[in-house]
């Protein structure tokens, strides 16, 4: 753990009888983007909140949570002073303007006013909200509010940035803009921790990911590595069940795996030509041949049926 910025060992969190986080351990090295993937209710947000002291982990069984050398259960201030948090809800002060929101936040960090004002100008430029400096929060779109919350989290030049579903509910343009900004921050050496249920997001910006389900870690690794290790490279999707049955009868090759948990079934194979050959019996438009992605892996790992929190 000497090189890890965050070290978590055997973390548990229960709400009454519900177990939100179960036996979770991981290490986050400095200056990487580390992603938590999982369906709603997987325990991602609980784990984030434990890291900055908003939630408190279970005392039993014994566990270790170390964030930049501090234990959040007893030293939340030390951690938060060097971190920025983007919570799931925007929770901006809707009664104040953009700049006032940032000024109030700079006070929480005890920043001198001139320094704060300078930093605010930099940040508004960075998140492309310069023209909105004196706007009221209600006048901002969802994407603008999100960018402002990110700016707010960066006010004190954090070493660690924690983002809980930073792009949920945003349109593709804003989402890409935010990815670009996060990429930029990572290059500056900031460690980024984020939760998401967008597989593409994880693939695009995360160096390392953990896939969680029901409070537990299911897989961990680099996104591409996880794909290589756990799922065939290509997948053939068909639109109709009948087409699926046609294909099923043709398969004598054990290299093709049929995933029946999805309806119509999916056909996985490491060899593109095998799938292409298989698809020849179908009309164009009846099938879709593509590379498999994290979403396939995710669904395979966490199951296709909904849990009670989704």
């Amino acid at each position: 753990m000497s090189t890890a910025l965050i070290h978590v060992e055997n973390c548990h969190k229960s709400y009454g009888t519900f177990k939100a986080v179960n036996h979770l351990s991981f290490d986050v090295p400095p200056a990487v983007c580390f992603g938590f993937l999982g369906p709603n209710g997987a325990g991602k947000t609980s784990m984030m909140k434990i890291l900055y002291g908003k939630n408190v982990r279970d005392n039993v069984p014994p566990s270790v949570v170390n964030v930049m050398g501090y234990d959040p259960a007893t030293q939340e201030l030390e951690i938060k002073y060097q971190s920025g948090v983007v919570p799931q809800d925007n929770n901006l002060d809707t009664e104040l303007s953009v700049i006032q929101n940032l000024i109030v936040y700079s006070k929480f960090y005890n920043m001198p006013r001139t320094m704060a004002l300078k930093r605010i100008d930099e940040l508004l430029e960075f998140v492309e909200l310069k023209e909105k400096k004196h706007a009221r929060i209600r006048e901002l779109s969802g994407g603008m509010q999100r960018r402002l919350v990110i700016a707010r989290a960066l006010i004190h030049k954090p070493k660690l940035l924690i983002l809980d579903e930073p792009t949920t509910g945003l349109d593709p343009q804003v989402r890409r803009l935010i990815w670009e900004k996060l990429q930029h921050l990572k290059e500056e050496g900031i460690t980024i921790l984020l939760t998401t249920h967008y597989m593409e997001e994880a693939f695009q910006i995360c160096d390392q990911i953990i896939i969680m389900d029901k409070g537990e870690k299911i897989m961990e690794g680099k996104p591409q590595q996880l794909l290589d290790d756990h799922i065939e490279r290509y997948v053939l999707e068909v639109q109709k069940k009948s087409a699926g049955e046609v294909l099923r009868r043709q398969i004598h090759n054990s290299a093709v795996r049929i995933d029946d948990s999805s309806q119509p079934p999916l056909f996985y194979c490491n060899d593109l030509d095998t799938l292409r050959h298989l698809a020849e019996s179908l009309q164009n438009g009846e099938f879709y041949l593509r590379q498999s992605n994290l979403e396939d892996l995710f669904l395979q790992a966490t199951g296709r049926t909904l849990n009670e929190q989704q």
């Binding site: 938060k80 936040y105 989290a153």
Partner: peptide
Amino acid sequence: DKVYDGMLAAP
């Protein structure tokens, strides 16, 4: 408003 949640993300 969840104002407190926003404040508690700060030190």
